[in-house]
Design a binder for these strands. Structure first.
Lengths: 188, 188
DNA sequence: TTTCCATGTTAAATATCCTCAACACTTTCC
DNA sequence: GGAAAGTGTTGAGGATATTTAACATGGAAA
């Protein structure tokens, strides 16, 4: 459980890194943002939780969008190849999600190797989140529901839609169902 | 110039739409988020600027990430399902690319069902373009070159990298190689 | 009808953010 | 050296977010 304090420190670290990356002093940024340098100091040192409005004004001064800010992370060496065993397991129950890349912080693309046991799925509650997602069925039969549309897909069939539409997945038939899917931006 | 009030109303509208999409009452969401329903009411009606910490906790209750929340926008109607025959053929030579969705104008995600005849590939010239791409090998063996790294991938193995790095693909061995890949943004 | 439970809104009190002003420190320039 | 202007940090107080506890409305069941 991530508490308010952790969030503040996370925000602070991101802001400090970004500000330095743009070669701005706290005062310079504060002036562009229309707030005081003290606020920026407090935010960066993780000593307070800025309001969304205040953060927005600061980010406008850099400039960077809210969405980009929250998917930002200081650079590191990138891992490119992943053998099958390295795909991290993030599913549970009858559904198994194997993700390419362990930490997608700062990434724009999430690719999953999904395996549904017969009759299992994402549950009754529909998912809905920002972004776009799609996939291709490799084997088995997958029932996909998007908004009020529903369709049964077999091997070679595919789907692609805006993730803000409520959606759910369920494997039907007696064989397990394998799907390769992609999301942008990552949602887990 | 966007002022604090506009931001508050924007946040409120997004949150209300998302909450209803997930069929949660203000109180139900408040309980999951660990805050009071009054706060959610005030946020949704645009009467205040929540702190980032408070917003984060609310979004955790939905759940949706910060980045996704700020890139969220209302839905539109479009084609979602594609049977195998509808995947448009855009490959040539020994390589066949079957794309999900015919016209990707305005889309952020491109998903391909790729099939390489033994020994074929994307050619000697390395590709390099904006975006990010990844994929999972379904069958056969694929040699992937990214920058000065090269690796031979088999079924279940995967790759994920920034597309600005020069890269190329080639099927090796005697069997054909099948891969499901994704790009954001689309590059064809 | 009456009661009950759920919804969203709001006033007053408390907790927190944000600013103003000052502080200590370093770098730059005479 | 000393002044001047830069850096980030902190205390006190006014401004604002958040809680507590109530209010008003609406639908469902008796």
């Amino acid at each position: 459980m991530e508490n308010t304090h952790d969030i503040a420190r996370d925000i602070g670290a991101r802001l400090r890194a970004l500000r330095r990356m743009h070669k701005l002093s706290q005062r310079a940024l504060a002036k562009k943002a229309g707030i005081t340098n003290a606020t920026i100091s407090l935010i960066e040192s993780g000593k307070m939780n800025p309001s969304v409005g205040a953060l927005k004004r600061v980010l406008d001064g850099i400039p960077i969008g809210m969405s980009a800010f929250f998917s930002f992370e200081p650079e590191r060496e990138e891992k490119v190849f992943f053998v099958a065993e390295e795909l991290v397991q993030i599913g549970r129950g009858g559904v198994s999600f194997r993700q390419v890349g362990g930490n997608l912080f700062g990434k724009k693309l999430q690719i999953l190797h999904e395996c549904y046991a017969p009759g299992t799925g994402t549950g009754k509650v529909k998912l809905a989140h920002a972004g776009e997602e799609g996939g291709i069925v490799i084997s088995g039969r997958l029932e996909v529901t998007v908004g009020d549309q529903r369709k049964l897909l077999g091997p070679g069939d595919a789907y692609l839609f805006d993730s803000t539409r409520p959606h759910s997945f369920r494997a039907v038939g007696e064989r397990e169902c394998v799907v390769v899917s992609a999301c942008t931006p990552p949602t887990f």
